[in-house]
Each structure stands twice: as structure tokens, then as C-alpha cells.
Design a protein around this nucleic acid. Sequence first.
RNA 1: GUCCCCUUCGUCUAGUGGUUAGGACUCGGGAUUUUCAUUCCCGCAACAGGGGUUCAAUUCCCCUAGGGGACGCCA
Length: 509
Amino acid sequence: MSHTKPKVRTRFAPSPTGYLHVGGARTALFNYLYARAMKGTFIVRIEDTDVERSTEESYNQMLESLAWLGLDWDEGPGVGGPHESYRQSERIEIYREHAAKLVAEKKAYYCFCTAEELEIKKKKREGMGLPPVYDGKCRSLSDEEVKVKLDQKTGHTIRFKTLDKEIIVRDIVQGDVKFDTAIIGDFIIIKSNDYPSYNFAVVIDDHLMEINHVIRGVGHLSNTPRQILIYHAFDWNEPAWAHVSEIVGSDHKKLSKRHGATSITAFRDMGYPREAFINYMSLLGWSPPGGKEFMSEADITGQFDIARCSKSPAMFDVFDLSKAGEVELNLLSAKELENYLFAKSKLNWLSNQHIRALTEEEYLERIFPFVSDCNCIPENELKKDNENLKSILLSLRVYLDYLQQIRHYICDFYADIEPTHEANEWLTRENGSKIVKSLFENLNSIHDFSAENIQKAFSTVSAETSIKGKELFMTIRSAATGKVHGLELPVYLSLLGKKRVIHRLEKLI
RNA sequence: GUCCCCUUCGUCUAGUGGUUAGGACUCGGGAUUUUCAUUCCCGCAACAGGGGUUCAAUUCCCCUAGGGGACGCCA
């Protein structure tokens, strides 16, 4: 008889209290990657038990960001699954039932202490240098006393009865970590508003949803003993734990809003391919055994192993905070954000590689929205099936780190040009106008404005003017494009088209 | 304050009780490209500090510093 290993089930469980940021996205990614690598199931569950802070807007944006990253969940909001609902706010009864069971078994108890009372006690203990744990006052209430208070509708919480013992968290990335329950105390599992606390709801849901691998930020490590206590109280099996390092900003502090634009949508809006962003995030705290860092999603899932994750925090430093100063980066548009980006970040390098790895169709499809955003292209030319536009976009892609950058290049093909200072220097040289005149004549006589024919015309110009080499070509480049850098010249001119080139030259004569 | 965790080039990281401490991005130089980009080659650059243990420590132990987290009716 062969026993089959249970399928790996992982989950990402965000609370909808803000946008999905890089830290959360990386956690989601690792859960997703591990599930895919192990041919398991990836679940998304929404932890919205904080009624004050949870918003519908955040809920929607969270799912939208996950969907953009392509972290398709097998069970969760929108797709359903065998353990619905996947929103904690719709599972409240489940938590209450489970809490009642613990109370009945004397593993938890009603607590009638008020928030004010607790606050005073906490201060006092702190003053004495003791850990501010609950003193267990209501633990000893008799059933009768409890019944009376309950009948009087006295406000209450339910606390877990924490027994003295040492808890060891056996963690795949952190190793064995010991905790003493003395500093935990009797913690609340049901809040006075009758909603479950995080530590309680998480355990109930993870168990019921058959999650067997909990992958999350190391910030949760010290919550884990509480959760283990609850697993034990119900006599449930613990999942495997994996607490991965947090992501920090360039100031070495945990990523937060002040680090700016850590929202996933900001990167989407700038035109980073989702493949690139995933590739980059996968490298934050994990490294492929082979060492090759430019990877497709399939490359990554083929190699991903949670056991190879690092304990030390990774820095997410694509933004130059010193340049930003007091600017609130999160409020900037995608275009403005560009000014604060480190142009030569690894993210940009990866992104450039991914853009170039896209199929032509895929690339054109994705870049078009960014192109139509540039106002320089005449409406009659701004068509998805415009072959000339397509060729231009294709030739430009090697320059792009993210799709939005197209606006820095595309207008050179359409707008009227103003020669740069350097270009003017070539044009105003002794032979400048001679070259431009000859060029004009020779290009004007071409019928098929192909790169080959343009190249031939260059030869004729060279023969006519007795000028060759750098002077010839830089002058031509300056005249036709107004710049001293750019694409290969014959190709460039053929993409520009005869009409525009001739028009530009005419203005210089 | 108490407890827990972390620290390898600027950044992401590999790795080991004996290695010229490896790779990638960035940066510098060179080749190719009559330009830029691409591509290729070469180079700069790190084991936080101090004590142990050991024939030998970046690796194991302790301390210090720095960073993070928990001690919530937040998740």
C-alpha cells in the first residue's frame, strides 16, 4: 500500500486595508510559486475581520493587483472552491462556534475586563518591568458568575487559556525557534464586537481550508506560538511553517508607504511587464540553484523551493528617496514617478530583457495603450494595424526598460524636430549645407524608400560631396533626426518615410 | 523594558571549518556598432566589530553595535 503525500496547499491571506504593496506581493508570489512548483493548490483568502479598516475599494484593488501579476488562485474570491466563503467576514459564525467549543471544554473563557481596566493593568506591569500580559483575572470566574454577567449583557471577550509550556516553532526557513508561553498570556480569540481576532481566525480557516504550508513574512513568527496553541487545543495537525524575511527600503526599514510607490499598480502603470516584476520579486530573498537570474515564470516554478529562502531581509531600492525629498511618491502619476526611479536598477535590466523576450504580437498589444497616450502621433496613423507604426515600435523596443518610456522615443518620428545643440554643430559646419542639399536631391529621387536604397543614396552623396565617414553620417543624422544618437541610419530614415524626411530636409535648405 | 530573529561587494545573492570567497545588477576600461542602445571581453568592489574554540573561522560559540519583529479587543 502506497500512501500518497497530501497535495501542497498554500494561501495568501491579505487584509483589505490598503493597496497591495511589494512586500505583500512577494509573500503572495512565494505562496503561488511554491504551490505551482509542488503541483499544489494556491488559495486566496481575505482577512477582513477588522471592520474599521477594511474597505471594499481595497478588496477590489488587492484582487486586481494579484490578477495583474498573474498569481491565479485556484480557490478564493471570484473562483470559489470547496471551502467557501473565502472572506472571513462571511465566516463569522464558524469562528463563534469554534470558540464556543473551546469554552465548553474549558480551554477558553469569557473575560469581562474593560479596555480601560486592561490599560491600567498593562501600564502597571510595564512600570514593574514585567511583560504586559493579561493577569488572568476572569479565568477563575465560576460558571454561575459568568452566566449572570452574560445574562446582564455585560460586554465581554473570549480568551484562550494559555498553559505554561515551551512551544517550538519548527520553521522551514527560520529553523527551530523556542518560545515561552509566559510572555504570551491568555490572549483574546473573540473580540468584544463578537468578531474573531486574527490569531484565532487564521487557525480556524487554515485548518478548515486544509492549508498545509503557511508561508508569510517573518513578522508573523512571534504570532505562531499562539496559533500552535490553538491547533493543539483542537487536536489539529499544524501546517508546515515558513517565515520568509521581510522586504526593506533603502533606509533599511521595513517597506512602508513612505518608501513610495510600493503599490503594485504603480509598476503596472509604468509599463513593467508582469513577467519582469515577478522575476525581480522572486529574487528578493530567494535565489535559483542554477544562478541564472533572468527567468520566465516556468523557469522559476521549475526551481522554486521555499527551503532556499534567505533569513536576512532584502532591500527594495528602485526609488531614489534622496531625490524625492519631501515628495509623497505614492501620490504621483506613473509619468512623474519616472523621475525618482533608479534608471539602472536590476528591475529595469530584467524588465528590458523581458520586453525583448515578448513575441512581436504580444509586445505590440501591450505597448499600444502607452503609444496612444503620446499625443504626437496623428490620429490617422495611430492604428493597431499600421505597418509603419508597428515597425517603428519594434525597432524601438531594445531601448525600453518599461513600456511607458516609449513616449521618449516615439515622438521623434512624428513631431517637428528641433535639432539639439550637438546636432546643430554638425549642421553648421563648413560642409553642412552641402551635404544636406545633396542628400535632399538624392533621397527625393528614390521611389522605393527602403533602407537599401537609402544606403545607396548615401554613397552617391558621399561621391558628390567627397565627404565620407563620421562627418557625412553625423551630418545626415543631425539633419534627418535632429539628434546625434539613435537607430541605424538607413533603417531610421526608411521608418520615418520619404515624406517626413524630405519635409525635414526642406526646412534646412 | 522583556523575549525572538537578522547582518557576505553599493544592491540582489551563492558558498565553505582549509576557496585566488563565486555569480548577477550598477560602475570603470576595451572590442563590435562610423552614433546611441544591443552584444562580447576585462576590471573595481564584501564575510559589521571584538573576543573565544580550533592546527585552521567568513563558516561554530559568546559579547557589542546596527536593523527588524512580538509583547493589541491590528492583521
